[in-house]
Design a binder for these strands. Sequence first.
DNA 1: CGTCCGATACACT
DNA 2: GTGTATCGGACGC
Length: 209
Amino acid sequence: MQQLGRRLTRAFFARDVLTVAPDLLGRVVVRDTDDGAVAVRLTEVEAYAGPLDPASHAYRRTTRSEIMYGPAGHLYVYFVYGMHWCANIVTGRDGVASAVLLRAGEVVEGLPLARSRRPAARRDADLARGPAGLTAVLGLTGRDTGTNLCVPGTGLVVRAGSARPVTVAQGPRVGVSTAADVPWRFHLDGDPTVSVYRRGTRATRGGIR
DNA sequence: CGTCCGATACACT
DNA sequence: GTGTATCGGACGC
């Protein structure tokens, strides 16, 4: 296992999800396995605000969403559309049940391994474009749900310190079918790895009570 | 570039 | 039984 660098602390993730989400942009996620390491610089994330947020899996407390009711800094990976995995980081105080969905990034280390995990990608900028692609490039699946990003030895880290200063843009979330108009998607404006905006089907009632 | 649509299996009602 | 926090290929401009 190679040197992963200093990691973000539990205190970083334990803040409000709307503070944590934009603060993650420009930071580097590193995943190290027996196959090697892949690092991704985050360019797009979305905030999901637990029981207040109809679009969040934690809107109701179920077996699947239980992880989000636990401590911040743990990983939540869910399965969607019968074939894709998507990765979140749990945020907020215990019991607040909020999380940040990792939506897109730029592969900055481990390009060959990243390409092998996503053979369909045409350009390197497409490798981690979209949440399922980003998750695949990092080699994460449901088995990784519960991983604590804030302790050594897990092979998964968000490095402390921004790569460079970053300008954050904000807009509605992608693909959600409820609360579609809440501007809780954060991204680096104009970055080639940011996924295209698609409104969810059935997107009628927006808003949070 | 854009829009349309099928694949696919799981959690939840 | 129903809906899905997606992707990529097909097609039109």
